[in-house]
């Protein structure tokens, strides 16, 4: 099967900053592929290279069977791209934005209406409204409609869910799921770990390095130890107490509980009494499944201290 994207050993530097070092991965046709990583990890740079907006310093990249360096003109016709800041014309209405992008790509709104119907119908009642006056969720839907209007084979979405509320985010992922039926390959980047579960496959990216590439389930399964969650009303005290124990390897707050790993991968027998010694009487401990974030954290730690300090990455995003 032909790969939608195939890269080997991509490197990109901006001055003294290494934005991407030795990135190799491939994306299958019509899968939803997610780049998960914090701000400054290199996601945007990678997306720009894939959309032919930037050239890598070294390494090969083929998108939809075409070479990004030499065949970028043909390739650009088949890519739908939604940059980090929704690229809409604020002073054009919803309708005008959509029509503009349709003409630019040599098509019409009518021609591919079925493709965007599910998304556009949410905002069609407000089609006369200026894009600048839309809420975040509506802007996001309009930007997606615009990126899809020429029926691209590859859809590249750079942080489409940043700054959008939870409901719109959830709806957005539902929409991406529905696009699968049109055989469109979708590439999404996001700093939000929980969104990884909505992708077919994900790549965890940090400091310009790929930490892992797999299905979200397998990424979680890669977690090396048994993970336990401990709950108590006083979380701060609990973290400190757990960290002071000999059996504890790591102890981090996670949501309502504290995620802990123990030596021997089991709860120390006298855990409750040890905690009681430190004034915690309500501790409730149970084994829990590691999430993407837990795995990401583990990978960052095993990758060594250079990963823990996130390097200057904002420059790469400008």
């Amino acid at each position: 099967m032909q790969k939608a994207i195939d890269t080997s050993a991509i490197c990109k530097r901006f001055g003294n900053t290494t934005a991407l070092s030795n990135i190799s991965f491939s994306v299958n046709e019509s899968e939803v592929f997610g780049f998960i990583g914090p701000d400054g990890a290199g996601k945007t740079t990678l997306m720009r290279i894939i959309t032919t907006l930037m050239l890598p310093d070294s390494g090969d990249i083929n998108v939809l069977g075409k070479n990004c360096r030499t065949e970028f003109k043909e390739l650009r016709k088949e890519i739908g791209y939604m940059p980090g800041r929704f690229s809409l014309y604020q002073d054009l209405s919803v309708e005008e934005n959509l029509e503009f992008y349709a003409t630019v790509f040599g098509t019409s709104v009518k021609e591919n209406y079925d493709l965007i119907y599910d998304i556009y119908s949410h905002i069609e009642p407000f089609k006369k409204r200026l894009a600048g006056k839309l809420s975040g969720g509506m802007k996001q839907k309009l930007a997606l409609s615009c990126a899809l209007i020429h029926k691209p084979r590859l859809l590249v979405l750079d942080e489409p869910t940043t700054g959008v509320d939870a409901v719109s985010r959830s709806e957005f992922w539902d929409m991406l799921g529905k696009l699968r039926q049109y055989n469109i390959t979708i590439l999404v980047s996001t700093p939000y770990m929980d969104e990884a579960m909505r992708c077919d496959r994900v790549a965890l990216i940090q400091n310009g390095n790929l930490l892992a590439i797999d299905t979200p389930g397998e990424v979680r399964n890669g977690y090396g130890r048994k993970l336990f969650s401990v709950k108590s009303a006083d979380k701060y005290k609990l973290i400190i107490a757990l960290r002071s124990l000999n059996e504890t390897i790591t102890s981090f707050p996670f949501g309502e509980s504290v995620h802990v790993t123990f030596k021997n991968d089991r709860i120390p027998e006298n855990l409750n009494s040890l905690l009681q010694n430190q004034g915690i009487n309500d501790a409730l401990t149970e084994e829990t499944e590691a999430g993407i974030e837990d795995r990401f954290l583990e990978l960052m730690q095993t990758a060594g201290p250079s990963f823990v300090k996130t390097t200057e990455g904002k420059a790469a995003r400008q």
């Binding site: 990583g37 914090p38 701000d39 990890a41 940043t162 700093p191 770990m193 940090q206 981090f252 707050p253 996670f254 974030e293 837990d294 990401f296 954290l297 960052m300 730690q301 823990v308 996130t310």
Partner: peptide, 8 residues
Amino acid sequence: GVDPITRR
């Protein structure tokens, strides 16, 4: 948008 370690 911060990394998991910093976040925790």
